[in-house]
């Protein structure tokens, strides 16, 4: 599956308090979370972006609190894929579990800018900067984890495969 959209660029160590401040955690309603995504650093983020746009960040994206509301908020706001140099570990797991596509690439975040038009192939991990033609390849994701995202998250995946079929996944 290919995602093509405008890049919204963030720096290093974007923590989950920045993604969705705790004062909004009295709700897990997807629309509420989307509305309050990045409320403190980019108020109105959801209204600025178009569905399928691409969030590009630096090192350690999603650090801090384990709140699953963070990847949910990003997904509900309409972001099609997050590309970061790397992710904090709880966020990484949560993103797959809620079906938010994420990819790790050292090079892409350093070479694309806010506003760049970028195309991402979620299956192959190919990232293309449509403005410059530059091409990058994200760290490959094991098949079973791609299947979780493709299914729309762990719940849908488990419904399809059954709890006992989880194996080492």
């Amino acid at each position: 599956m290919k995602v093509q959209g405008t890049v919204w660029k963030f720096g290093d160590n974007v923590d989950t308090d920045l993604i969705i401040p705790a004062r909004f955690l009295n709700s897990s309603d997807r629309d509420e979370l989307a509305r309050n995504c990045f409320a403190d650093i980019r108020p109105g983020f959801m209204d600025m972006i178009s569905p399928g746009d691409i969030l590009v960040a630096g090192n350690n994206f999603g650090s801090g609190s384990s709140r699953e509301h963070a990847p949910l908020a990003i997904k509900a706001a309409g972001i099609g894929v997050v590309v970061a140099e790397n992710f904090a570990r709880i966020f990484y797991r949560n993103a797959f579990n809620v079906g938010l596509p994420i990819l790790e690439s050292k090079e892409a975040p350093q070479s694309v800018n806010e506003g760049s038009l970028v195309s991402v192939d979620l299956a192959t991990g190919e990232i293309v900067n449509m403005n410059t033609g530059q091409q990058f390849f994200a760290k490959p994701v094991p098949r079973f984890m791609r299947e979780i995202v493709d299914a729309g998250g762990l719940v849908e995946y488990v419904k399809k495969k059954g709890l006992t079929g989880r194996g080492a996944s």
């Binding site: 990847p71 998250g153 488990v158 989880r166």
Partner: peptide, 14 residues
């Protein structure tokens, strides 16, 4: 270790 809610939801069952 800490996890998100989905991981925990599945653990509650399994």
């Amino acid at each position: 270790t800490g996890v998100g809610s989905t991981d925990l939801g599945v653990i509650l069952a399994t």
